[in-house]
Computed example of a mutant assay.
Amino acid sequence: MNLKSHHAWWAFALPIVAVLIWSLNIVVTRYVADYISPISISFYRWLLAFLILTPFMLRPVWRERTFIRQHWLQFAVLSASGMFLYQGLAYSAAHYTTATNMGIINAFIPVFTIFVSILILREIPNRFAVIGSVLSFSGLIYVVGQGHLSSLLNLGGHWGDILMVLAVFFYAFYGVFLKKWQLKISLMISLYVQIAFALLYHLPFVVILGLDPINSTNVASVAYAGIFPSLIAPLVWMLAVQRIGPNRTSIFMNLMPIATAVIALFWLKEAWTIYHTIGGVVILIGIAIAQKKTATQAPSWLKPS
């Protein structure tokens, strides 16, 4: 009995670890914005992850080559929305907004997923999803407007927040496409193939814009991005889903805005203001309502890359 209880508590620690890794990555993204271009860190990140996985994945990928060839377009779309566009826009947003705002906006993924599900899956949301979505969107507007709705007219002052909202919107497409296609292949092979496509998407931008060199000011951030949020966190998250179930695991995603804000407060000295508190609480309440008894929530193992 004690052994089972101990095991359960250990399992509940898994999604917390994953959320902390992703939250720290948002802060790292903001921190490194002053030291490396968005295209450079994005390319280096996926290149490092690709190189680490290659020795372990070449044989499994070769065995599944027929399936991969048949579904290459789906893998390409998943990579474009979930890796290239989502993370690329997030790296760009980091130049214009705070890590705290990025964490709060990132929590909006489940609500955006409901909207995208309506467009692609033709799923009609129930009243909880509608009420929760409206409430969360109101909180998001409040945060972006820094507590003053009139300031939203100054779009230039919110460019980073707009980019982050767009990034989250693309990630919602990623989740819905995963649900729509449900590719019958191991998650690790799927991850590896998507990373390969992400590298291909970067090549034209690398040729045109070039790459910033890796140096002492950015090497740690590049290494962290390529290893922890790209490889370790997804594995830990999937293990949590196996141990405690998808529904209970997904609840821990709501900790991300709080964890991001705390890390940013101590590391980047970002201020946590009253509009962050009010807007963040409204967003989280809306998300909780939107996920109640709805079949259109994001897949519970869905995670930000």
Rank of each mutant, 00 (worst) to 15 (best):
V27S: 01
A290E: 06
G157W: 14
W181R: 01
S150H: 14
Y275K: 00
P55S: 07
T277K: 01
S92N: 11
I263Q: 03
A288E: 09
H7A: 11
F115N: 02
F205T: 05
F43P: 00
Q146G: 13
I21M: 13
V27M: 02
W46N: 04
V116C: 05
V165E: 01
I195H: 10
A90Q: 15
G286N: 02
L284I: 11
G103D: 09
W62E: 02
L47T: 13
I16S: 04
V219I: 15
L211N: 03
I189H: 12
G147N: 04
A49G: 12
T260E: 06
I104T: 05
T100S: 14
T100I: 15
R248S: 07
G103P: 10
N254W: 02
L149V: 13
A107I: 04
S42V: 03
I289Q: 10
A225H: 13
I285G: 00
L302S: 07
W10G: 03
G245A: 09
S37E: 14
A167T: 10
L255S: 08
V281T: 12
V134M: 14
G286F: 02
T296R: 12
S305A: 15
I36N: 01
L187D: 06
L166P: 09
G245P: 08
S151N: 13
N126Q: 11
R122M: 11
L209R: 10
L152M: 11
G156D: 04
E64I: 00
L191Q: 12
Y96Q: 06
V17M: 13
T98D: 09
N254S: 08
L163A: 03
I195F: 15
G132T: 03
Q242N: 14
L153I: 09
L239K: 15
H95E: 11
I195P: 01
L265E: 01
S40W: 00
Y91Q: 15
A290V: 05
K293A: 09
F177I: 10
T277G: 13
M188N: 13
K4G: 01
F112K: 00
I162Y: 07
A11P: 08
